[in-house]
């Protein structure tokens, strides 16, 4: 109980150490989702709107990659960025940028797969109307993304939830360096192993709050979609 009370105090008093960890976590996850969206939405649209040999297999692989194990991604990014790796000269290992890369790799399949499904469903519905209105390829993609914006927002929030909650990848490529690459999840793992439960519980409370807010936003996006788009 005392540790629980201390944890709540840490959260309510906006403890600088706790806030620094929360801030870095949000920055890394938001940056990862932004990168993943830039790749995932066009990739999803491309797969949705084109027909090519192996497309079905591509969709199966993309869907399977939604369950990519974070530690495996962390290991792969570690091998890429380590001094002897192909991208070792970039000097990114154990930096927030490395964490962004790892999380973006984890989140991109989620956003791409959900975007593909959303855009393909809309495309089936809109195809003939857009053809009849003589809408060009870029106009079609823009229309489908705009009209699917509420569902795509839900996909982005799902990606953010995945990024914010994962620990395996960021602990490998970030190194959990105090004040530099320590995120909520890696800090919880470390502080729990050290027995410093107040900070771990405090971060756990913030993390759960963030997950609830993200889900509320996803629900709100869906409701807004129903209200404004029918």
């Amino acid at each position: 109980m005392p540790s629980d009370l201390t944890a709540v105090q840490l959260v309510l008093s906006a403890d600088p150490e706790l806030m620094g960890i929360v801030s870095l976590s949000l920055t890394v996850s938001l940056a990862a989702v932004a990168c993943a969206a830039l790749i995932g939405i066009p990739l999803g649209a491309l797969i949705a709107l084109t027909r090519f040999p192996g497309r079905e297999a591509c969709i199966v692989v993309l869907n399977a990659l939604m369950g990519l194990p974070p530690v495996v991604v962390g290991l792969a990014v570690y091998l890429l960025l380590s001094r002897s790796g192909p991208l070792g000269s970039w000097g990114l290992l154990f930096t927030p940028q490395a964490m962004v890369i790892a999380q973006a790799i984890l989140v991109t399949p989620i956003i791409a797969a959900l975007a593909r499904q959303t855009i393909e469903d809309l495309w089936v519905e809109y195809r003939e109307e857009l053809a009849a209105m003589n809408v060009g390829p870029l106009g079609r993609i823009a229309t489908l993304i705009w009209d699917g914006r509420f569902s795509l927002t839900t996909a982005l929030l799902a990606g953010f939830g995945r990024a914010a909650a994962e620990v395996g990848a960021v602990i490998i490529v970030g190194g959990n360096i105090d004040g530099f690459t320590r995120t909520m999840t890696t800090a919880i793992a470390l502080e729990t192993s050290k027995g410093d439960l107040p900070l771990a519980i405090g971060l756990g409370i913030v993390l759960i709050a963030i997950v609830i807010v993200v889900n509320a936003l996803a629900w709100g996006a869906r409701r807004a979609g129903e209200r404004f788009s029918g």
């Binding site: 809109y126 003939e128 109307e129 009209d147 699917g148 979609g225 404004f228 788009s229 029918g230």
Partner: peptide, 10 residues
């Protein structure tokens, strides 16, 4: 079309 698709707009 017989069943026209409505864009998800106003």
């Amino acid at each position: 079309f017989q069943r026209p698709a409505m864009l998800r707009r106003s």
